[in-house]
Protein backbone atom coordinates (compact mmCIF):
# COMPACT_ATOMS: atom_id res chain seq x y z
CA UNK A 1 0.00 0.00 0.00
CA UNK A 2 2.93 2.27 0.84
CA UNK A 3 4.10 2.33 -2.76
CA UNK A 4 0.69 1.89 -4.35
CA UNK A 5 -0.82 4.96 -2.64
CA UNK A 6 1.13 7.67 -4.57
CA UNK A 7 0.43 5.87 -7.84
CA UNK A 8 -3.29 5.66 -7.07
CA UNK A 9 -3.35 9.36 -6.15
CA UNK A 10 -1.52 10.21 -9.40
CA UNK A 11 -3.88 8.17 -11.59
CA UNK A 12 -6.87 9.60 -9.70
CA UNK A 13 -5.71 13.15 -10.44
CA UNK A 14 -5.22 12.32 -14.13
CA UNK A 15 -8.74 10.88 -14.31
CA UNK A 16 -10.22 13.94 -12.59
CA UNK A 17 -8.35 16.13 -15.05
CA UNK A 18 -9.67 14.19 -18.03
CA UNK A 19 -13.18 14.22 -16.53
CA UNK A 20 -13.07 18.00 -16.10
CA UNK A 21 -12.22 18.43 -19.79
CA UNK A 22 -14.90 15.97 -20.98
CA UNK A 23 -17.59 17.60 -18.86
CA UNK A 24 -16.78 21.27 -19.52
CA UNK A 25 -15.51 20.87 -23.07
CA UNK A 26 -12.87 23.52 -22.39
CA UNK A 27 -10.66 24.47 -25.35
CA UNK A 28 -7.26 22.75 -25.65
CA UNK A 29 -5.36 26.09 -25.61
CA UNK A 30 -6.87 26.79 -22.16
CA UNK A 31 -6.51 23.35 -20.61
CA UNK A 32 -4.98 20.50 -22.67
CA UNK A 33 -5.97 16.92 -21.91
CA UNK A 34 -3.50 14.62 -20.09
CA UNK A 35 -2.71 12.60 -23.20
CA UNK A 36 -1.55 15.60 -25.25
CA UNK A 37 0.60 16.77 -22.32
CA UNK A 38 2.20 13.33 -22.13
CA UNK A 39 2.68 13.41 -25.91
CA UNK A 40 4.38 16.80 -25.63
CA UNK A 41 6.49 15.43 -22.81
CA UNK A 42 7.56 12.53 -24.99
CA UNK A 43 8.17 14.52 -28.18
CA UNK A 44 10.03 17.43 -26.58
CA UNK A 45 11.83 15.31 -23.96
CA UNK A 46 15.45 16.25 -24.94
CA UNK A 47 14.57 19.96 -24.92
CA UNK A 48 12.68 19.67 -21.59
CA UNK A 49 15.59 17.77 -20.10
CA UNK A 50 18.20 20.36 -21.04
CA UNK A 51 16.05 23.21 -19.67
CA UNK A 52 15.33 21.18 -16.52
CA UNK A 53 19.09 20.74 -16.09
CA UNK A 54 19.53 24.52 -15.99
CA UNK A 55 16.72 25.04 -13.48
CA UNK A 56 17.86 22.16 -11.26
CA UNK A 57 21.41 23.57 -11.22
CA UNK A 58 20.03 26.95 -10.13
CA UNK A 59 17.92 25.39 -7.40
CA UNK A 60 20.71 23.20 -6.03
CA UNK A 61 23.28 26.01 -6.06
CA UNK A 62 20.77 28.35 -4.42
CA UNK A 63 19.96 25.75 -1.77
CA UNK A 64 23.62 25.17 -1.02
CA UNK A 65 24.53 28.83 -0.89
CA UNK A 66 21.42 29.86 1.05
CA UNK A 67 21.92 27.09 3.61
CA UNK A 68 25.58 27.99 4.04
CA UNK A 69 24.88 31.71 4.49
CA UNK A 70 21.84 31.04 6.70
CA UNK A 71 23.76 28.69 9.01
CA UNK A 72 26.70 31.09 9.27
CA UNK A 73 24.40 34.02 10.10
CA UNK A 74 22.53 31.98 12.71
CA UNK A 75 25.81 30.91 14.34
CA UNK A 76 27.09 34.47 14.44
CA UNK A 77 23.94 35.96 15.94
CA UNK A 78 23.60 33.09 18.41
CA UNK A 79 27.21 33.33 19.54
CA UNK A 80 27.75 37.09 19.66
CA UNK A 81 25.27 39.28 21.47
CA UNK A 82 26.63 42.38 19.78
CA UNK A 83 26.03 40.92 16.33
CA UNK A 84 22.55 39.84 17.36
CA UNK A 85 21.51 43.35 18.36
CA UNK A 86 22.61 44.73 15.00
CA UNK A 87 21.86 41.91 12.59
CA UNK A 88 18.48 40.67 13.80
CA UNK A 89 16.56 43.88 12.96
CA UNK A 90 18.24 44.02 9.54
CA UNK A 91 17.23 40.41 8.94
CA UNK A 92 13.60 41.14 9.79
CA UNK A 93 13.49 44.30 7.68
CA UNK A 94 15.05 42.42 4.75
CA UNK A 95 12.11 40.03 4.88
CA UNK A 96 9.66 42.90 4.59
CA UNK A 97 10.88 43.44 1.02
CA UNK A 98 9.15 40.90 -1.25
CA UNK A 99 11.87 38.82 -2.87
CA UNK A 100 9.89 38.81 -6.14
CA UNK A 101 10.18 42.58 -6.31
CA UNK A 102 13.94 42.17 -6.24
CA UNK A 103 13.99 39.82 -9.24
CA UNK A 104 14.22 42.52 -11.93
CA UNK A 105 17.00 44.27 -9.99
CA UNK A 106 18.94 41.04 -9.60
CA UNK A 107 18.66 40.36 -13.32
CA UNK A 108 19.83 43.91 -13.98
CA UNK A 109 22.83 43.49 -11.70
CA UNK A 110 23.77 39.87 -12.28
CA UNK A 111 22.63 39.37 -15.85
CA UNK A 112 20.49 36.89 -17.77
CA UNK A 113 22.53 33.86 -16.77
CA UNK A 114 22.77 31.52 -13.82
CA UNK A 115 23.90 34.05 -11.21
CA UNK A 116 20.67 36.06 -10.91
CA UNK A 117 18.55 32.89 -10.46
CA UNK A 118 20.94 31.40 -7.91
CA UNK A 119 20.78 34.73 -6.06
CA UNK A 120 16.96 34.61 -6.10
CA UNK A 121 16.85 31.05 -4.77
CA UNK A 122 19.49 31.93 -2.15
CA UNK A 123 17.56 35.00 -0.99
CA UNK A 124 14.28 33.15 -0.73
CA UNK A 125 15.65 30.38 1.50
CA UNK A 126 18.11 32.46 3.52
CA UNK A 127 15.53 33.72 6.02
CA UNK A 128 13.76 30.43 6.86
CA UNK A 129 17.11 28.66 7.28
CA UNK A 130 18.61 31.42 9.45
CA UNK A 131 15.58 31.77 11.70
CA UNK A 132 15.07 28.02 12.14
CA UNK A 133 18.71 27.35 13.01
CA UNK A 134 19.00 30.39 15.30
CA UNK A 135 15.86 29.31 17.10
CA UNK A 136 17.33 25.84 17.60
CA UNK A 137 20.63 27.26 18.88
CA UNK A 138 18.75 29.45 21.35
CA UNK A 139 16.74 26.59 22.80
CA UNK A 140 19.54 24.35 23.99
CA UNK A 141 18.49 22.34 27.05
CA UNK A 142 19.76 24.50 29.97
CA UNK A 143 20.84 21.39 31.91
CA UNK A 144 23.28 20.47 29.14
CA UNK A 145 24.81 23.93 29.28
CA UNK A 146 25.12 23.68 33.10
CA UNK A 147 26.84 20.34 32.70
CA UNK A 148 29.22 21.74 30.09
CA UNK A 149 29.96 24.69 32.38
CA UNK A 150 30.82 22.48 35.36
CA UNK A 151 32.92 20.22 33.12
CA UNK A 152 34.97 23.24 32.15
CA UNK A 153 33.97 23.12 28.48
CA UNK A 154 35.10 26.06 26.37
CA UNK A 155 32.52 28.24 24.64
CA UNK A 156 33.62 26.91 21.27
CA UNK A 157 33.54 23.23 22.27
CA UNK A 158 30.15 23.69 23.93
CA UNK A 159 28.88 25.16 20.67
CA UNK A 160 30.30 22.36 18.53
CA UNK A 161 29.57 19.41 20.83
CA UNK A 162 26.23 20.46 22.32
CA UNK A 163 24.49 23.49 20.89
CA UNK A 164 24.90 22.75 17.17
CA UNK A 165 23.88 19.06 17.35
CA UNK A 166 20.91 19.91 19.54
CA UNK A 167 19.81 22.60 17.04
CA UNK A 168 19.88 20.21 14.07
CA UNK A 169 16.21 19.16 14.30
CA UNK A 170 15.20 22.84 14.16
CA UNK A 171 17.58 23.43 11.24
CA UNK A 172 16.02 20.43 9.49
CA UNK A 173 12.59 22.09 9.65
CA UNK A 174 14.11 25.18 8.03
CA UNK A 175 15.75 23.07 5.32
CA UNK A 176 12.46 21.33 4.51
CA UNK A 177 10.84 24.73 3.99
CA UNK A 178 13.88 25.77 1.93
CA UNK A 179 13.62 22.69 -0.28
CA UNK A 180 10.03 23.50 -1.09
CA UNK A 181 10.49 27.24 -1.79
CA UNK A 182 13.86 27.20 -3.59
CA UNK A 183 12.24 26.20 -6.94
CA UNK A 184 9.98 29.27 -6.67
CA UNK A 185 13.02 31.53 -6.51
CA UNK A 186 14.62 29.93 -9.54
CA UNK A 187 11.45 30.00 -11.67
CA UNK A 188 10.60 33.61 -10.82
CA UNK A 189 14.14 34.55 -11.71
CA UNK A 190 13.76 32.84 -15.06
CA UNK A 191 10.46 34.56 -15.77
CA UNK A 192 11.98 37.97 -15.26
CA UNK A 193 14.80 37.44 -17.68
CA UNK A 194 16.61 34.39 -18.98
CA UNK A 195 17.48 32.39 -22.06
CA UNK A 196 17.22 28.88 -20.57
CA UNK A 197 15.43 26.90 -17.86
CA UNK A 198 11.94 25.51 -17.34
CA UNK A 199 10.58 28.96 -16.43
CA UNK A 200 11.95 30.34 -19.70
CA UNK A 201 10.50 27.40 -21.63
CA UNK A 202 7.07 28.00 -20.07
CA UNK A 203 7.05 31.68 -21.05
CA UNK A 204 8.30 30.79 -24.53
CA UNK A 205 5.57 28.18 -25.00
CA UNK A 206 2.95 30.49 -23.51
CA UNK A 207 3.64 33.14 -26.12
CA UNK A 208 3.06 30.52 -28.83
CA UNK A 209 -0.08 29.04 -27.23
CA UNK A 210 1.71 25.72 -26.78
CA UNK A 211 -0.16 25.03 -23.58
CA UNK A 212 0.66 21.32 -23.68
CA UNK A 213 4.38 22.17 -23.56
CA UNK A 214 3.76 24.51 -20.64
CA UNK A 215 2.05 21.74 -18.75
CA UNK A 216 4.82 19.29 -19.63
CA UNK A 217 7.40 21.73 -18.22
CA UNK A 218 5.27 22.18 -15.12
CA UNK A 219 5.07 18.43 -14.69
CA UNK A 220 8.85 18.03 -14.90
CA UNK A 221 9.31 20.86 -12.37
CA UNK A 222 6.74 19.38 -9.98
CA UNK A 223 8.33 15.94 -10.18
CA UNK A 224 11.76 17.37 -9.45
CA UNK A 225 10.47 19.52 -6.57
CA UNK A 226 8.80 16.51 -4.96
CA UNK A 227 11.89 14.35 -5.47
CA UNK A 228 14.08 17.10 -3.98
CA UNK A 229 11.86 17.44 -0.93
CA UNK A 230 11.82 13.72 -0.22
CA UNK A 231 15.55 13.33 -0.84
CA UNK A 232 16.32 16.11 1.63
CA UNK A 233 13.80 14.77 4.12
CA UNK A 234 15.39 11.33 3.88
CA UNK A 235 18.94 12.64 4.32
CA UNK A 236 17.88 14.73 7.33
CA UNK A 237 16.16 11.76 8.95
CA UNK A 238 19.31 9.68 8.54
CA UNK A 239 21.49 12.46 9.97
CA UNK A 240 19.21 13.09 12.94
CA UNK A 241 18.17 9.52 13.57
CA UNK A 242 18.48 10.09 17.33
CA UNK A 243 15.50 12.41 17.34
CA UNK A 244 12.32 10.55 18.27
CA UNK A 245 9.80 10.75 15.43
CA UNK A 246 6.39 10.95 17.04
CA UNK A 247 4.36 11.66 13.88
CA UNK A 248 3.25 8.16 12.96
Amino acid sequence: MRFARPIIIFIGLLLAWQLLISVTGVAAFILPDPLSVLTALYQRWPELLSHAGVTITEILLGLGLGTLLGCLSALIIAQYRGARLWVLPVLVVSQAIPVFALAPILVLWLGYGLASKVAMATLIIYFPVTVAFYDGLRRTEPGWLDLAHVMGGSRWQTLVQIRIPSALPALASGLRVAASVAPIGAIVGEWVGSSAGLGYLMLHANARLQVDVMFAALLVLALFAVALYFAIDRILRLLISWQPDKAL
Partner: peptide
Protein backbone atom coordinates in the same frame (compact mmCIF):
# COMPACT_ATOMS: atom_id res chain seq x y z
CA UNK B 1 33.75 19.59 40.93
CA UNK B 2 31.68 17.00 39.12
CA UNK B 3 27.92 17.45 38.92
CA UNK B 4 25.02 15.05 38.64
CA UNK B 5 21.52 16.44 38.23
CA UNK B 6 18.06 14.99 38.60
CA UNK B 7 17.79 14.54 34.84
CA UNK B 8 20.52 12.31 33.44
CA UNK B 9 21.41 14.98 30.82
CA UNK B 10 22.77 12.35 28.45
CA UNK B 11 23.16 13.71 24.92
CA UNK B 12 20.75 11.74 22.72
CA UNK B 13 23.03 11.81 19.65
CA UNK B 14 26.05 10.26 21.40
CA UNK B 15 26.55 6.63 22.35
CA UNK B 16 26.60 5.78 26.04
CA UNK B 17 30.41 5.48 25.91
CA UNK B 18 30.80 8.86 24.21
CA UNK B 19 28.46 10.39 26.77
CA UNK B 20 30.70 9.11 29.55
CA UNK B 21 33.67 10.77 27.83
CA UNK B 22 31.82 14.06 27.28
CA UNK B 23 34.00 16.04 29.72
CA UNK B 24 37.18 15.30 27.78
CA UNK B 25 35.49 16.16 24.49
CA UNK B 26 34.32 19.49 25.90
CA UNK B 27 37.78 20.36 27.17
CA UNK B 28 39.38 19.27 23.90
Amino acid sequence: IAYLAQQDLLLPWLSVLDNVMLGSRLRG
